[in-house]
Computed example of a mutant assay.
Amino acid sequence: MLPVLAAAQAPAVTPDSPLPRLLAERKILTDHYREASAQRHSLFGNKPSKKDLQEVVDALQGIVDKDQQIVNVLNETAQKATSTSARLTATTTKLESTSRDDRNLTAQRLLELENEAQNLRQREKQQLAKQRDLEAEVAEAKQGRFVRDALIAALAVACVGLLLVRRRRN
């Protein structure tokens, strides 16, 4: 992600760009044109000679050639900027897609965890209900055992009483 951000923040004219050099050369050619157009070496007075006019034409041709070089560099820079923009757009689209997929996956996992938690709560309620039922059964069994033990004790007392009554009669 850092190379993408670095490319996005890079200036259009890089240190190794020929554009500053070409602009400096064009300025020199423009200065040469001014000097050439100011020359007046004609025999007839204050008119430029054929040689002066040829120098002006050569200076203008140099400026035109330099302008063409500058336009070519600008076109290359524009093409690089377009390709960089396309790469950035593709990377942004990919990052957005990945982010969207991550959000969907996280939401799906969160929903699964919530369902699992709800299922665990439901099982816990069922276990508590089972535990209450078993405790009730244990209480009933204890109550039944108490009644049985009480009956056995009463029968034992009755048997002892009958034995005593029988012994007294005999």
Rank of each mutant, 00 (worst) to 15 (best):
L2H: 10
L5V: 04
A10Q: 12
A12T: 02
P15V: 02
P15Y: 01
D16K: 00
L22H: 06
E25C: 04
R26C: 07
R26M: 11
K27A: 15
A38R: 07
Q39E: 13
L43D: 14
N46A: 06
N46I: 03
P48Q: 03
D52C: 04
Q54H: 08
Q54S: 12
V56R: 02
A59H: 07
A59R: 02
G62F: 02
V64L: 14
D65S: 14
K66I: 07
K66D: 14
D67M: 11
Q69L: 11
I70T: 03
N72G: 09
N75C: 06
E76Y: 03
Q79L: 10
A81C: 08
T82H: 07
S85R: 05
T89V: 11
T89Y: 13
T93S: 10
L95R: 06
A107L: 11
Q108A: 10
R109W: 02
R109K: 00
L111W: 08
E112I: 00
E116K: 09
E116V: 02
R121T: 04
R123Y: 08
K125H: 06
A129R: 07
A129F: 10
Q131C: 08
A136Y: 00
E137W: 04
K142L: 15
Q143R: 14
R145D: 10
F146R: 09
D149P: 01
A150Y: 12
A156M: 10
V157A: 13
C159Q: 05
V160F: 09
L164V: 13
R166M: 12
R167L: 10
R169W: 13
